[in-house]
């Protein structure tokens, strides 16, 4: 259905996730949900609320706390013909199941000469801001973007959350949907109908003429605040939310930089070795001659996520950091 025909309402991100899952369960008879506390409790952040009641215990399963088993359940059942939605409660828990993710789920199709497909959707929660400390707050998307065979999306708005979950579930590849816990209450327009955001298509959140900010995940909201500040300095920033990291929409970013000649990349993940470095490389490969300044990067310091709110606030990149980095880059 064309986007113009859809009737929008305002919903929080958490409810948009639920609507995305519900839409998938309605349109795909072989879809089921499995994960820790997803059935009886409706998920630790409540985004499976009502799913068990509506679809019943034959399609919604509480699993043991057993992350490698959960991913294996997804891989094996997908190979058997299902379209599983598996939940990885916190992205940090990828450490418990990385063999199943990296060596099995990502590689099975290629290793078998393309003779299988694994339509798996994994929802997982990333990000700091709730004082959950070093093992429940990370943004580890760089780990999974480095694995050929996986697709990775990072919805930032309620609209994108619903549309990307539906697109992920319709895709015949394993797709990891990286959600953000500090975005759960953020409200936005969400159509009632089922719709999909195409995988691999970035969104120009705010058009601009002389500066490009590529903002991943929740940093998009911080970038908007930063752009308001920068406007006062005569910087007309274009903000791009990649939405999908793998496959990455290089064209949209490069086209913007060719127009604006300056770029800044921001993500919540640790800056060193983060996905931003890949975006920088792609820009300089495709648009080096258009650049009027070195590309700036904003990310978390090279440190585990701290517990104390006083430190955590310093750790997470914000609009002030973006403005400061832009001013330094532009000599303002």
């Amino acid at each position: 259905m064309a986007e113009a025909q859809l009737k929008p309402r305002t919903l929080p991100y958490v409810s948009a996730i639920t609507e995305g899952v519900r839409a998938v369960m309605l349109e795909q008879p072989t879809a089921f949900v499995a994960g820790e506390d997803v059935a009886g409790a409706g998920g630790v952040y409540g985004y499976y609320a009502g799913i068990l009641d509506e679809f019943g215990p034959e399609r919604v399963y509480d699993t043991p706390i057993s992350e490698e088993g959960i991913v294996g359940l997804g891989v094996g059942s997908a190979a058997a013909g299902c379209r599983p939605i598996i939940d990885m409660m916190f992205m940090d828990f990828l450490g418990e199941c990385m063999d199943e993710v990296a060596n099995q789920m990502a590689k099975m199709r290629y290793m078998f000469g393309g003779r299988t497909k694994l339509p798996i959707t994994m929802l997982t929660m990333a990000g700091a801001g709730m004082s959950l400390a070093a093992q429940h707050s990370q943004s580890l998307e760089a780990w999974i973007c480095h694995l050929p065979g996986l697709k990775v999306v990072m919805p930032t708005t309620p609209y994108d959350a619903k549309g990307l979950i539906i697109a992920a579930a319709r895709d015949d590849n394993p797709v990891i949907v990286v959600l953000n816990k500090m975005s759960l209450a953020i409200k936005g327009e969400v159509p009632e109908e089922s719709y999909e955001i195409p995988l691999g298509k970035a969104n120009i959140v705010r058009p601009g003429t002389n500066y490009t900010i590529v903002a991943m995940g929740r940093m998009m909201h911080e970038a908007i605040k930063a752009a308001d500040e920068l406007a006062k300095l005569g910087v007309d920033a274009e903000i791009i939310d990649p939405r999908t990291l793998q496959p990455f929409d290089t064209d949209t970013v490069v086209e913007s930089v060719r127009k604006t000649h300056r770029a800044l990349i921001v993500h919540e993940a640790v800056r060193f070795g983060g996905f931003g470095g890949e975006i920088v490389a792609q820009i300089q490969e495709e648009a080096f001659d258009y650049l009027d300044a070195p590309i700036a990067r904003v990310g978390a310091p090279f440190s585990p996520v701290p517990f104390s709110p006083a430190l955590e606030k310093l750790y997470i990149p914000n609009a002030d950091n973006i403005v400061a980095a832009a001013k330094k880059q532009l000599g303002l």
Binding site: V71, G72, G76, A80, Q104
Partner: peptide, 11 residues
């Protein structure tokens, strides 16, 4: 083992 278990779950 996790894949076989998953296949059996799918079955």
């Amino acid at each position: 083992p996790p894949i076989a278990m998953g296949a059996a779950f799918g079955n």
